[in-house]
Design a protein around this nucleic acid. Structure first.
Ligand SMILES: [Zn+2]
Ligand SMILES: [Zn+2]
Ligand SMILES: [Zn+2]
Ligand SMILES: [Zn+2]
Lengths: 130, 130
DNA sequence: ACCTCATTTGCGAACTATTCGCAAAAATCC
DNA sequence: GGATTTTTGCGAATAGTTCGCAAATGAGGT
C-alpha cells in the first residue's frame, strides 16, 4: 500500500506527442487546440497539470511570451544552452552557449539563421548583496 | 480647438516618482502598493494606463517575470543594452552590448556583480523562412 | 478477466492579472 | 472662474490559470 505514482495515461501520451512534433514554444491553449485537431479530447486542466509535471521532471522549458502568456517546449533546461527563435514561424533552434561570442556569424553559418535581434539577461548578485 | 493632449497630473507624477527611485522591475500591483505606502491614492486602472503611456513614449521597459506577470522599469529601450539582475534584491544594472563577449569579467570589474547565470534569446528568421 | 485501490481526469467554480465603459473629477486655456 | 478636453475611479468584463471533488482510468494481484 505504498505509493504507486507515475501512471501512463492516454492524455499524457497525447500531450507529449504534440510537444514532440513541434519545435516551438506553445501555450497551453495551443496544445489544447492541437489535441482537438487530432481528435484527442483532453480538458484544459489536464493540459496544465501535465505541463506542470513535465516541467517538474525537467523535460520541458517554460517561458512567458511577450504578452505574459506562458509557453512550453520540449527542451532539457539542465543542458545549458540558448534559443534562436524565428520571428516568422516561431521555430526554435538550440544554440550552444560557447557559440555566444561570435553569435551572429555562427548562427548564420550553422543554421542559415538571419539574426535581427536578441535579448539577454544576466543574473547573479550585485555588489551590495554580495 | 485642436488637441490639447498630455496633461500633467498628480497620479502621473506620483507613479513616475515611484519608478524613478526603484532600479528594479516592478509589477503594476507593486507600484500600486508603493503609492499607497506613500499615501498617494491612485486606482490600479490608472497605474496600468500610465504604464502603457510611458511604454508608448519609450520611457520604460516591460518584461514578463517568470510567472508571466508583467513588470516595468524606467529604462530607455531605444538605447540598446542588456540587464544584470540581482538574484537577491532584484536590482538591475545596465550592461552595454559590446561588453557581451567578456561578460563575466567585465560585469565583475565594472559593477562588482557576481554572475551566476544568464538567459539569452536570439530572434530572426530561420533558414526555411528566409 | 475481475476486483480493489491509488491516481488521474473532467467539470465548473474560483482566482488573478489586465482591460473596458462611463460618469465624475481634474487639468488647461482664455 | 467658466468652457472644454483629458484623466480618473469604479465596477464589470475578459483571459489565463488554478482548485475541489465526484467519476473514470490505470496498475497489481487473484
Ligand atoms: Zn532548447
Ligand atoms: Zn521560420
Ligand atoms: Zn536598462
Ligand atoms: Zn542585490
Amino acid at each position: 500500500m505504498g505509493i504507486r505514482a507515475d501512471y501512463v495515461t492516454r492524455p499524457r501520451e497525447w500531450i507529449a506527442s504534440i510537444l514532440a512534433r513541434e519545435p516551438r514554444f506553445l501555450s497551453a491553449a495551443q496544445i489544447h487546440q492541437g489535441l482537438e485537431r487530432v481528435g484527442a479530447r483532453v480538458s484544459l486542466s489536464t493540459v496544465y497539470r501535465t505541463l506542470d509535471r513535465l516541467q517538474a521532471k525537467g523535460d520541458i522549458t517554460a517561458r512567458p511570451d511577450a504578452d505574459g502568456e506562458v509557453t512550453y517546449m520540449l527542451c532539457e533546461p539542465s543542458r545549458h544552452h540558448h534559443h534562436a527563435i524565428c520571428r516568422a514561424c516561431g521555430r526554435v533552434e538550440d544554440v550552444d552557449c560557447a557559440a555566444m561570442e561570435q553569435f551572429a556569424e555562427s548562427l548564420r553559418a550553422l543554421n542559415g539563421f538571419e539574426l535581427d535581434g536578441h535579448a539577454i539577461e544576466f543574473f547573479g548578485k550585485c555588489g551590495a548583496c554580495r
